[in-house]
């Protein structure tokens, strides 16, 4: 296991129990009924990778596992998901939630900004769970928003353009200085021009902050942005070959 890995997965298997509430309607199944079956996968600190797969292949389930929002199949035995050297699966309850807040940033297709909160408050809400001293939260959030081109930090995000909402979402994802950023179809709601701008932003911000980026996308134009492209099927079928 590389000592500098932002993300290191070993022997991870997952399938939804019958009738599980969390199961996405389109979730498919792989060999042996496993939706996720990854012998090994590593992502170095600051590295950026694109994860591709067909619809319903389990990409989002994998991201949820990495974020600690799902637990692997307990009958399978011990697998590990290490983020910045900490095995997420060894953490439980509030400790895992707090670790996620501090170490993993998430960017969604629909941004998922908090309704009723200003752009600034959306970023500060993420900082609530960080180890950064509270007195620094406001200044840090303002600086981040300014750097990302948000001129009206106190505006309701509903009053911002789609591109600006995306910027607020990115600012929120990197506010705590995470080791890993998970981006789930981050450009699916955007037109080609805004899509390109958004990806430029996400990749540059992650690069500047030193966060590794694992991006899931259906967009074919994404491939050329990443030197490392990983197919989910490839991860499962040829474990020895992944990670490169």
């Amino acid at each position: 296991m590389p000592p500098t890995a932002a993300l290191s997965i070993r022997d991870l298997k997952f399938r939804y129990p019958p009738g599980a509430d969390d199961a996405p309607a389109e979730s498919g199944e792989g060999v042996g009924g496993w939706i996720v079956d990854i012998p090994a996968f590593d992502l170095a600190r600051g590295e950026q990778a694109l994860l591709t797969a067909g619809s319903g292949a389990g990409k989002s389930t994998l991201l949820s596992l990495i974020a600690g929002l799902l637990d692997p199949d307990p009958s399978h035995g011990a697998g590990t998901i290490e983020v910045a050297g900490t095995n997420l699966l060894a953490l439980h309850g509030a400790a895992r939630d707090l670790f996620r807040g501090r170490s993993i940033g998430m960017i969604f297709q629909t941004f998922n900004l908090l309704h009723g909160f200003s752009a600034l408050e959306n970023v500060m809400a993420a900082l609530m769970f960080s180890a950064i001293p509270p007195r620094e939260h406001r200044a840090r959030a303002l600086a981040l928003l300014e750097r990302l081109g948000i001129a009206r930090p106190n505006a309701d995000p509903d009053r911002l353009s789609v591109g600006q909402q995306q910027r607020v979402a990115v600012a929120r994802a990197v506010a705590c200085g995470p080791a890993l950023v998970l981006a789930d179809e981050p450009t699916a709601s955007l037109d080609p021009e805004n899509s390109a701008n958004a990806m430029d932003l996400i990749q540059s911000v992650c690069r500047e902050s030193g966060a590794a980026l694992l991006c899931v996308s259906h967009d074919p134009s994404m491939a050329e942005r990443f030197t490392r492209r990983v197919g989910l099927r490839e991860l499962s079928a040829a474990p020895a070959a992944v990670g490169g």
Binding site: A67, A94, D97, L98, H115, A126, M128, F129, R172
Partner: peptide, 19 residues
């Protein structure tokens, strides 16, 4: 129903179930 998404976002940001 309106606030489930907000609760989920807070969870993603680091809020525990208890919180």
């Amino acid at each position: 129903e309106q606030r489930r998404r907000q609760i989920a976002v807070l969870r993603v940001l680091g809020a525990s179930r208890g919180r």
